[in-house]
Structure formats: C-alpha cells, structure tokens
C-alpha cells in the first residue's frame, strides 16, 4: 500500500534560490503530522509540491503513490492555503456547496458550516467576513469534500486565542476519523499540541523528524543572556545543560531547556552577571540549537 504522502528526493529551485534541498519523507495514512520551521524555511514550497501547485526541480511528490496533478488524486485531498482567494460575491453556504460539488462523497453543508462555527454567517457574502471567519471558511472548503488527506498551510495565522482553540479542536475532530492531516506551523506549541509527528525544516533541509517530545527535548526553550563584569571565561559553562552558547565581547547568550539549573549553577560558580535576562526562545532562536547555526 502506497504512503498517503511522500516526497522522494524533492528539490525546488526558484532561479538561483534553493527553497528545498533533496528532501525525502513519507507520511502514513491516518497520521497527524506537523511541519515546523521558521518563515522561509521551505514549508510552503513542500506543501505546494505535494499539492501539485509547483513542480519539483528534482525528485517526486506523490499522493497515494500518484501524481497530485491528476483530478482523480485531487479528489482525495483538501487544502487550506496561505494567501489564496475565493469569490467575494458568493455567500458562505453557496461557496461551500460549490466546493462540495467537486468531490464524490462530500459532507453535508450544514455539518461543515457548523463544524467551523460559521452558522451565524451562513448567508453572509464572503467579502463581509472578518479575517478569522474567512480563515474558518477556508477550512470549511478544505474539509467539505470529506477528503482522505487534509493539507493546512499555516492555518492559525492571524487567529485570536479563542478562534485558535476552536480551530485546533476541529482539526483534531477531523483527524480522529482515520484521516491524514499535514499542517505547517511556526509555533512549536501548536505542533506539540496537535501532532503525533513533527518534521522540522530549515533552509530547505529536513533537519529533524520525530515525536513532539523528541523534538522538544532537542530544541532549546529558553534564552539566558547577561553581561559579564569580568572578561568571560568559557570554562564557566562546562558541564551546564546548554544547547548553544554565544559569547561576544562581554555579552553572553545561552540557549537551554533548563534555565533554572543553568542559573543555579552559574550563581554557585560565582559568575558575575549584569543585566541578566531570561525569556522564552522564539522559534528562530530555538532552531539554532537544532541547526547548529548558533
């Protein structure tokens, strides 16, 4: 049985820019996978190859072992894209009904509208929806055909906390019925909350592939920085649970998953710290420890 989704040595170049470099992975039917990476890492390019919106420069993208460009294959997946548009002068239900008609065994319109929480806006023209509501409409269009695979490219961007919570629940509900879901995100928490497997992509390379726990343990969650009163001796860091350290002049920056232990030890070693700052690492910083770019 073919994999639900597969990239085989897939590369993509835009002119001289290599957006994706020889990436291979397979996703089994029924799994919920998050593709995690900073902006510009190659997540959207990967999704576009899988959807057949772009052609790989080298390698292959397969959906159930077939070309994603064929209509028969496209009937097996739904997609929510970044930056795509829909007709503004149709009402919510009209648009859902239209997209349902593209699929052989669609879900009932009422059920779809309810699932995404747009009952109140069912008769509203698309152009009169708010940003969050439009986002949920896109989700409705992606799932209305009851597809076997769901692609979601940065689905929660621009959503408020409540909208995001409802939305993540809807994704989980959908996935629980044996569906395959692949979503991209640049929030580690989102991947952690939702997915059973996380693919980490950076600068066009697949740099990690594992359970959220495995990924989290490899990614530094906190950033400690301070100015050293005396010229800093790197030996002061020996044996500390630090995944990346940067010492420039007197400013020291450390990436770690265990800030308490690091600080306790630094205090114990009497390291002179001024302007001490501890905060959660953003994804870009967290990835430094994975990519070794620090």
């Amino acid at each position: 049985m073919p994999h639900a989704i597969e990239l085989v040595g897939a590369s993509k170049k835009y002119g001289n820019f290599e957006a994706l470099k020889n990436v291979s992975f397979a996703i089994e039917k029924g799994s919920l996978v998050a593709m995690l990476g900073p902006n510009g890492a190659g997540k959207t390019t990967s999704i576009n190859l899988m959807l057949g919106l772009r052609r790989p420069t080298a390698g292959k993208a397969l959906i159930f072992g077939d070309d994603p460009r064929s209509i028969a294959t496209r009937r097996r997946f739904g997609a929510m894209l970044q930056e795509s548009g829909v007709p503004q002068l149709l009402k919510v239900t009209e648009l859902v009904e239209l997209f349902r008609s593209y699929y052989p065994n669609p879900l009932p319109t009422d059920q779809v509208v309810k699932l995404v929480g747009l009952e109140e806006k069912a008769g509203t023209l698309v152009k009169d929806l708010s940003g969050g509501q439009t986002q949920r409409l896109y989700f409705a269009l992606a799932i209305c055909g009851d597809p076997e695979i769901l692609f979601l490219d940065e689905p929660t961007v621009g959503m408020d906390v409540e909208g995001r919570r409802v939305f993540l629940r809807a994704i989980r509900d959908f996935a629980s019925g044996g569906k395959t879901v692949l979503l991209t995100t640049h929030y580690l928490e989102e991947a952690d909350e939702l997915a059973e497997r996380v693919l980490v992509i950076d600068k066009g390379n697949l740099i990690a592939d594992g359970s959220p726990q495995e990924i989290k343990s490899r990614v530094a969650g906190s950033k400690i920085s301070f100015t050293s009163g005396a010229p800093f001796d790197a030996a002061a860091l020996s044996g500390l649970p630090v995944s990346a350290a940067d010492v420039s002049d007197h400013r020291v920056t450390l990436m770690t998953n265990d800030p308490q232990a690091v600080l306790r030890e630094l205090f114990r070693r009497n390291v002179d710290m001024l302007n001490l700052e501890v905060r959660g690492a953003d994804l870009e910083e967290a990835f430094l420890s994975l990519t070794g770019r620090g």
Partner: peptide
C-alpha cells in the same frame, strides 16, 4: 485575488 491558487489545488 489569487483565486486561481485554490482552484488549481481543487478537483
């Protein structure tokens, strides 16, 4: 409005 994008991914 980039409507062609979603249509092209649809069946």
């Amino acid at each position: 409005q980039k409507q062609d994008l979603l249509l092209r991914a649809s069946p």
